[in-house]
Amino acid sequence: MRQEMKSEHGPIPAEIQAVDLFCGAGGLSCGLQQAGIGVVAGLDFDQRCEYPFTENIEAVFLGQDLASTTSESLGEYFQSPKYSLIAGCAPCQPFSTLSNGSDRKKSSKWPLLRQFGRVVADLKPDLVTMENVPILQKEEIFDEFVTGLRSLGYSITYKVMDASKYGVPQKRKRLVLLASMLGPIRIISPEELGVEETTVRQAIGHLPPVAAGKTDKSDALHRAQGIHPINLQRMRHSKPGGTWKDWPYKLRLECHKKPGGATYTSVYGRMEWDKPSGTMTTQSYSFGTGRYGHPEQDRSLTLREMAILQSFPDDYKFTPAGKVPEFSSVGRLIGNAVPVRLGYVIGRSIQQHIEEYESQ
């Protein structure tokens, strides 16, 4: 039976069906659905992903480790699609530049890209997509992954994309790979989509004001972390797009008064209304972890604002009704997600590829 899935244009037959490995809260899946691709299942080891994935994507959630999951069991979720897609974003912590100088090759998450490759080799889907941090393309594990795909007969393209050029309201560079058994495939351009940069104002300017430490009565996710009195003073002296150098000297941190700390200017800052924000992280709800101060309200970002800057729909659900969203756990779900809009671009690239293939 052909599954009816969500898209920007209403329910459509899911001729392309996807299994989303490392699905997280569903950012990539949501974007694929908006592009008209059916998502039949998502897998993630983190059980906290189950509620947002099942509630929003309305697909099967598998709360398990990919390493202990057979390819055959994943393949059973495809419902006789015309085209099959394996999608995913292997956890990027081993490859991230934020790994604090640790040996990336010793990370327990390092083999997960090999597990991704193992599933592709076993199932041989028509299409494959992977998203990750740009530094991955310099690693041997990526060369191994690409070589494996080519040996199976896939045509491959990959490049580093600035998500802000595709309408995601934040500066976020990501490595995106597309592979197809049907022939050459490419990533469509912002010009083809007819999109422009989205600013912070355009993204979150419509939300009601919220004070630090408070929650909007109509949206539990529109919740701001409390702020220490001295950080409140610092916030009030912070200029949009500025740095802690705008503060009176007495408010500066001791580390910033030292010569070695003078270069760290990307923390304790406010965003600018009329530009995309900086890259969302798992801690973008905290004033001290980046330029995550609201452009004019004296507080850091709310969880809802974080989600919208990751291009999640305004009503995307991360926690059940009546449950107070925890900053650390929900912030991790949001910060680690593939921006929904980037997932849409990937989906539209695949759809255009199919259209070109079928027109031949």
Score class of each variant (00 low, 15 high):
Cys92Val: 05
Arg252Pro: 03
Glu305Trp: 08
Glu58Lys: 15
Phe78Glu: 06
Glu305Ser: 03
Arg252Tyr: 08
Pro134Cys: 01
Trp247Val: 06
Pro125Thr: 13
Val176Met: 08
Glu72Trp: 12
Ser328Arg: 11
Gln93Asp: 12
Lys82Val: 00
Arg299Trp: 04
Glu254Arg: 10
Cys92Arg: 07
Ala67Arg: 15
Met161Tyr: 03
Phe142Asn: 10
Gln352Asn: 11
Ser349Trp: 00
Glu191Ser: 01
Ile308Val: 15
Ser108Met: 07
Leu177Ser: 11
Thr69Lys: 13
Lys257Phe: 04
Ile16Lys: 02
Gln34Ile: 00
His206Gln: 10
Phe53Ile: 01
Phe312Lys: 06
Asp298Cys: 11
Phe287Lys: 09
Ser96Lys: 06
Pro240Gly: 05
Gly24Thr: 01
Glu4Ala: 12
Leu253Phe: 15
Met306Val: 10
Gly269Val: 00
Ile12Asp: 01
Gln297Glu: 15
Leu21Asn: 06
Leu28Glu: 04
Trp247Ser: 08
Gly63Cys: 14
Val40Gln: 10
His9Phe: 13
Thr282Asn: 12
Leu309Lys: 02
Ala35Thr: 07
Gln283Lys: 13
Lys317Tyr: 01
Leu232Trp: 04
Phe53Arg: 00
Ala211Tyr: 04
Ser238Ala: 15
Thr263Gly: 14
Glu144Leu: 13
Ala25Gly: 11
Gln47Arg: 15
Arg172Asn: 09
Leu113Ala: 06
Pro259Ala: 11
Glu196Asn: 00
Ile334Gln: 12
His353Cys: 00
Gly167Cys: 03
Ile12Asn: 01
Ala67Pro: 09
Leu301Trp: 05
Ser329Asp: 02
Met130Glu: 00
Trp110Met: 09
Gly288Cys: 14
Lys245Thr: 14
Gly10Pro: 06
Leu177Gln: 05
Ser71Asn: 06
Phe95Lys: 04
Phe53His: 00
Ser286Arg: 15
Glu15Cys: 01
Glu50Pro: 05
Ser300His: 11
Val120Cys: 07
Tyr264Leu: 13
Gln233Asp: 13
Val160Cys: 09
Trp273Ile: 14
Tyr77Phe: 15
Ala90Gly: 12
Glu296Ile: 08
Val120Ser: 05
Ser107Thr: 05
Cys92Glu: 06
Pro169Ile: 03
Met271His: 08
Val168Ala: 14
Glu196Asp: 04
Ser73Trp: 05
Lys6Asp: 08
Arg223Met: 04
His222Glu: 14
Gln93His: 13
Pro190Phe: 06
Pro11Leu: 04
Trp110Asp: 04
Trp244Asn: 01
Trp244Thr: 02
Ile204Glu: 03
Phe142Ala: 11
Val146Ala: 08
Ala307Trp: 03
His256Ile: 04
Met181Arg: 15
Lys217Asp: 12
Val168His: 11
Lys159Tyr: 03
Trp244Arg: 05
Gly347Phe: 01
Gly241Asp: 06
Arg236Phe: 02
Glu197Ala: 15
Gln202Asn: 08
Asp315Tyr: 00
